[in-house]
Amino acid sequence: MLNIKNLHVKLEEEDKAILKGVDLTVEAGKVHAIMGPNGSGKSTLSYVLSGRDGYEVTDGSAELEGEDLLDMEPEERAAAGLFLAFQYPVEIPGVGNMTFLRTAVNAQRKARGEEELSAGDFLKVIRAKAKDLKIDADMLKRPVNVGFSGGEKKRNEILQMAMLEPRMCVLDETDSGLDVDAMKLVSEGVNALRDAGRGFLVITHYQRLLDHIKPDVVHIMADGRIVKTGGPELALEVEKNGYGDLLESA
């Protein structure tokens, strides 16, 4: 599903390499986790995949189901099925959460040549999904993420993901800022979307999330590279011993 080969990325404005040859393949139906020390390049990878400005790809490739992601505008990547749950969801004053989501859902449908959802149908769907995530009607009406608590912002990301039904979901530290109950809710939201046609890349620092969202594969990223890949036991090792030994042996 997602194929990243030898991806090298530097900052556009300065001569600073951040990703130094990332190789990663996520198969449909699988959940891959990425762990790694602060500053190792995990968020950068997610931004480069979704097309944020400010980075320059100097080598390598990234494909989604055979399509060259790096050649597309951010909205085209979204329409192609990529979704990024942001580590820091953005506040947008003056744009209603509901309006935003409906615009997004319909823009994607339109880009894929599908019929747009009517206001009524959209409302039905979003109400049900919001309820599952314990997001109340008031939060749907408020401006996007404005005045939301940290946990509410993360739940709002998952709501967007549930509405957009992407094929490849990248979750950047969606667990940070969540209380124990919210972590469960969010995990249930993610697990509900798990199916044979969908891939997940879950960036996290903690085993806790992986207790709920069981990964098939765990990668360790350090200094802009995937330095180790293994099964769920790798995450347990990190939890127990930190990165020290792992990075030395890599």
């Binding site: 979704s50 615009t103 997004a104």
Partner: peptide
């Protein structure tokens, strides 16, 4: 706000439309 613009586009909102939304807000 480039960050807000990217956020909207990353959800599939075309650039023109995203700019309009931010202008309107």
């Amino acid at each position: 706000d480039e960050t807000a613009l990217f956020y909207l586009r990353s959800r599939g909102v075309p650039k023109r439309r995203a700019v309009d939304m931010l202008v309107l807000s």
